[in-house]
Design a protein around this nucleic acid. Structure first.
Lengths: 187, 187
DNA sequence: CTCCTTTTCAATCATTTGATTGAATCAGTA
DNA sequence: TACTGATTCAATCAAATGATTGAAAAGGAG
């Protein structure tokens, strides 16, 4: 699924995988760019929707670890049958790394639910961090997770470690990065 | 510099920018793939060399913050005249995100100096973390930094914040992620 | 069935791509 | 100067790419 990147994948790659004709892209989506923009848009919508739903379903007295586990559940347990979210998430991360225009155009969609649902949950558990700081760390963690899960270095590290161990290393690092003092508390 | 990615950039882009002829690529590098592999290899060598040199030049009684600042100096202050390292670093990060074969083939080169120079420095300051844990967090931080500096989300955040403020947010987050308890110390 | 719209598809187009060729130019040596 | 090897370059090639065309097929309403 777009493992070659936006520039590397061809219409024929896509249509052959879909069992369709090349011309159907023009008929249904007008152009390759438009098609890719729609793919990114729907991926963002789906991932943010399902993540928001999980986070909102959390009981009121949860720990930070529980919030993180629920938030990133399919990404932390790659063996999970529901790997669709992990695939979509890698797709989005890759698009972000390439600065794919079709993704950037749809990026603002995800902003709302992150700011209205996820960040307040973190704010309640981490009162020492300002909203600005939480947004920053949220973004940094998301990017860092991309390296853990799908970068060549991360893959090499993970090869020597069990899935559960990677999961524990990841959660410990995320918790540490969130729990530590903010800029106003530094000497 | 490779802002279009390995698949997106053409030989004509490269040779025109260099004021050279397309055929010179075949003459000097045999093929586009070989050229790109050499570019990645030299970028890795240069970045790791200059980073290692800075870290080794650190006085013996440094703080964690000082180590981080020296390690990532050109990445934390983008206005620095020595922006070459930041460019090279973004190049490498992008290649990693694309899993560029020419980069992966040269990736092991950087492993040694990281493990022999940088990680021991961290280990001295963070005795509660095992080497395995330090390697993991090193990789995660590196990837997270890519998102802070060059991702669309990071760019949007940075637009509302001053350079110095981003710098402080970044350092605080890195320090938090490194200082927090490791997996063996979690409940 | 008939008529009309929607959808599919093979064929084709113009462009771009990485690579190659062979002649021209340059650089160094005697 | 004349000779030789290294380098550059315009021209060209075959393959691949996104897009388009017009005809064929499918689907639905009356």
């Amino acid at each position: 699924m777009l493992t070659k990147g936006e520039a590397g994948i061809t219409l024929r790659d896509i249509t052959e995988a879909a069992g369709a004709n090349v011309a159907s892209v023009a008929y249904h989506f007008k152009s390759k760019d438009k098609l890719i923009a729609i793919v990114f848009g729907e991926a963002i919508d789906e991932v943010t929707a399902v993540q928001s739903r999980r986070v909102q379903a959390l009981s009121s007295n949860h720990t930070l670890r529980e919030l993180i586990e629920v938030w990133l559940h399919p990404l932390l347990s790659p063996s999970d049958p529901d790997e669709r979210e992990a695939k979509l998430w890698r797709l989005i991360q890759r698009g972000a790394a390439e600065k794919a225009p079709g993704l950037i155009a749809n990026m603002s969609r995800s902003g709302n639910s992150v700011e209205t649902i996820l960040i307040p949950k973190f704010a309640a558990l981490l009162p020492h961090l300002r909203t600005e700081e939480l947004l920053f760390r949220h973004n940094a963690i998301i990017s860092g997770l991309a390296g853990v899960i799908s970068s060549p270095i991360g893959a090499a590290l993970a090869k020597e470690t069990s899935g559960d161990e990677v999961r524990e290393l990841t959660i410990a690092w995320i918790m540490a990065g969130l729990s530590g003092p903010g800029t106003t508390q530094l000497s």
